[in-house]
């Protein structure tokens, strides 16, 4: 009896890639609102820039932002593991304890957000200590993600590290490969978080001002960091340039600038759309870079494709249904008036 072979992908690669990049962008957008929003709230809190109700208003949406970040993160992780299992599992195993601690860090952040939000609801005050704790949890998580996923793109280093230490206490030592990348992501989060705060607090001059400052400043800093990272790619830079990366990069930058411009005109909806598309472009750039770095050890085209159309269709229907229900519930919630 020949057993079924599991080494296949159950949909055309382009389809999986689109879903992967799209859900990852959604996750990063939520994550950026969360991480950026938290950092900005801390900053404003320390400098006593906001009124108590302003701070409480932001604190009260952070639990929902956490829920969104976590639940939107599941899908891209699934697609990542589908296409790059050899790289991703290997890297997570070598850094096993650090990777697992992410769960603890996120639970800690989540509870801290909830406590802050309940406290804000009861007393009108926001506890900076709790917010700092949550920020720490999120920063740890983002750093682990950057370091582990960078390790996943360095198969030789991975092998060498494992040969020396199998305990799961290995931290990716190639800081050059992910330090700048991580800073770029955090600054990007600050940018998106700035946008988020400025829109959320558009009725409060103080909040809108802080948000705008983070939006503009964050974008400039993120762009600078991104440029440095690009230069640091070194031997990969040449091959990278020969991919469609450059035009996409220019487009993403243009979209980011358009977002800034529209934001200053108070066209928040359009500005947000441009920002999201710009983020999508960055996610695509990141995807291409991964393939460039993995050249020689991994080729997407090597996957056997054996579509499972009926389960895929089921997913598609449920996915659309999910979007419809989400929108419908939000309308129900925000438009409904309580009974007298």
């Amino acid at each position: 009896m020949t057993l079924p072979d599991y080494r296949f992908i159950s949909a055309p690669l382009w389809l999986v890639t689109i879903l992967h990049l799209l859900t990852l962008t959604l996750h990063l957008a939520a994550m950026s609102c969360l991480l950026g929003g938290t950092l900005i709230a801390l900053w404003a809190g320390v400098r006593k820039q906001w009124s108590a109700p302003d701070a409480a208003g932001l604190a009260r949406v952070l639990p929902a932002a956490t829920a969104a970040t976590v639940s939107l993160g599941v899908a891209p992780l699934l697609f990542l593991q589908l296409v790059y299992p050899r790289q991703v599992y290997a890297a997570t195993i070598v850094s096993g304890w650090f990777w697992l601690a992410v769960i603890g860090a996120v639970i800690m952040a989540y509870y801290a957000f909830y406590r802050t939000s309940f406290q804000a609801h009861r007393t009108g005050q926001v506890s900076l200590g709790l917010l700092a704790l949550a920020a720490l949890g999120l920063l740890y998580t983002s750093l682990v993600y950057s370091s582990v996923f960078a390790l996943a793109e360095q198969p030789d280093l991975l092998r060498a590290l494992y040969a020396k230490d199998q305990s799961g206490w290995v931290w990716n030592p190639a800081l050059g490969a992910y330090g700048l990348r991580w800073l770029h992501v955090v600054l990007g989060a600050l940018t998106v978080g700035g946008f988020f705060v400025s829109v959320l607090g558009r009725k409060s001059p103080a909040m809108a001002a802080t948000g705008r400052a983070a939006f503009v400043g964050g974008m400039a800093a993120a762009a600078a960091m991104g440029f440095l990272y690009l230069v640091s790619l070194d031997t990969y830079l040449g091959p990278y340039m020969r991919t469609p990366a450059m035009p996409v990069l220019l487009l993403a930058l243009a979209l980011a600038l358009a977002a800034l411009h529209l934001h200053s005109r108070k066209r928040f909806g359009l500005s947000g759309l441009c920002l999201f598309l710009s983020l999508l472009g960055m996610v695509y750039l990141r995807h291409v870079l991964r393939l460039v770095r993995l050249r020689g050890s991994f080729d997407l085209a090597a996957w056997r494709i054996a579509p499972q159309w009926s389960p895929f269709l089921l997913f598609l229907v449920c996915f659309i249904l999910m979007l419809v229900v989400l929108v419908w519930m939000a309308r129900l919630f925000f438009r409904s008036e309580p009974d007298a």
């Binding site: 599991y6 899908a75 697609f79 589908l82 389960p311």
Partner: peptide
């Protein structure tokens, strides 16, 4: 690999 659409 077998159940990605189930999980999705």
């Amino acid at each position: 690999h077998n159940y990605v659409w189930g999980w999705a």
